[in-house]
Nucleic acid binder design. Structure first.
Length: 115
DNA sequence: CGGCTGACGCCGT
DNA sequence: CACGGCGCCAGCC
């Protein structure tokens, strides 16, 4: 009996939270970007921006999640190293314009239909 | 239990 | 623009 209870008690929804966040991310249209904070608030239930970063890290490449469309506040690329380069290339391939180090949020910022 | 580390965000200096 | 501090939260040691 502990097995069932333990399953719900020890993991109150690790997977559920991941899916809630992934769902919002996958809804970002091509050529658009959203911030970690946006995703956090749009998720159901809402969470913190940190958790969004955590969720993206847990995601598998095979999921085909558009992780590159998630940027930090102000359009900054939060990833570091080679990954940040890859993210920028992927975004530019979708027609996303940059200004300096960050995305032109005035052109590509996507907001959930609910707002 | 405590401390450290991140794909965060915001505000102050 | 560069730090630095604080809140935030999951994971690891």
């Amino acid at each position: 009996m502990t097995s069932l209870m333990e399953m719900q008690a020890s993991r109150p929804g690790r997977e559920a939270r991941l899916e809630a966040i992934w769902r919002v991310v996958s809804a970002i249209p091509e050529g658009c970007v959203a911030t970690y904070g946006d995703i956090a608030l749009a998720a159901d239930p809402p969470c913190s921006a940190r958790q969004v970063g955590w969720a993206l890290r847990q995601a598998h490449p095979a999921q085909g999640l558009p992780w590159h469309r998630v940027v930090a506040a102000g359009g900054r690329i939060a990833l570091q190293g080679p990954s940040s380069f890859e993210q920028r290339l992927r975004l530019e391939a979708e027609g996303v314009k940059f200004r300096g180090r960050g995305v032109r949020m005035d052109l590509h910022h996507f907001r959930s239909s609910k707002d």
